[in-house]
Amino acid sequence: MKILVCVAHVPDTETKVKISSDGISIDQSGVNFMLNPYDEIAIEEGLKSREKFTGEVTAISVGGDSSKESLRKALAMGCDKAVLLKINSVCDSNGVAELISNFAKEYQPEIIFFGKQSIDYDSSIVGGAVAEKLNLASISVVVKLEIENLEVTAQREIEGGHEIVKTKLPAVIIAQKGLNTPRYPSLKGIMDAKRKPIEERIVDAPAKLVEVNLMKIPPAKPAGKIIGSDASAVPELIKLLHEEAKVI
């Protein structure tokens, strides 16, 4: 079975956002980047599927040279191959989807795994768009997955509950936290990953459908009131919530 896992290289969750001088993106100086946490879940599920069905797992990323770091981590976790679709200019989500689906047409995977969203732009567009471009089935925000004889049964998270969804392979599966616990790369995995090649392909970024006009920091909240240091502050809190904030 051929399994494709799509990964993104993103600023880590501790990043404090500062706006870059271009006014439309973040200032990357001093920012640590990491493998998108939802994509680790996608990788783990890819590896589990390979353990069950045999075959190979290929990790793919769209980006610049720095994305190799996250692809290297995917290899260290146990992916067999890594592909970097290298772009020179910025690409929006539909563009990334276009590039990945072009690769998938050639690679012909039975399953394509994505993380729920990349934690930079939080768009959750790429997975669904790839499925549509390839005319594939897709299930998003998956927290439980079973595959038997090409039949897929998944649980997807909805507001206040879950949906049980059925489909057949080939399919796009978009992973949500809770689906599994991603493994840590073993020392051997890390050493092996250094020797595995990352295939690089230089591709043109497709035209953008979304134009970012400006990026800003949300207005800071004015400092609030400390109304006490024990339970005696509770009546005052209730009064303020009712009369001043008018939220109860």
Partner: peptide, 19 residues
């Protein structure tokens, strides 16, 4: 023109669509 949060709300972007 739409405003949407990015980085889980640490930033906001204003976007327009070209299509």
């Amino acid at each position: 023109i739409a405003t949407r949060p990015v980085y889980a709300g640490k930033g906001l972007i204003e976007v327009s669509l070209t299509t």
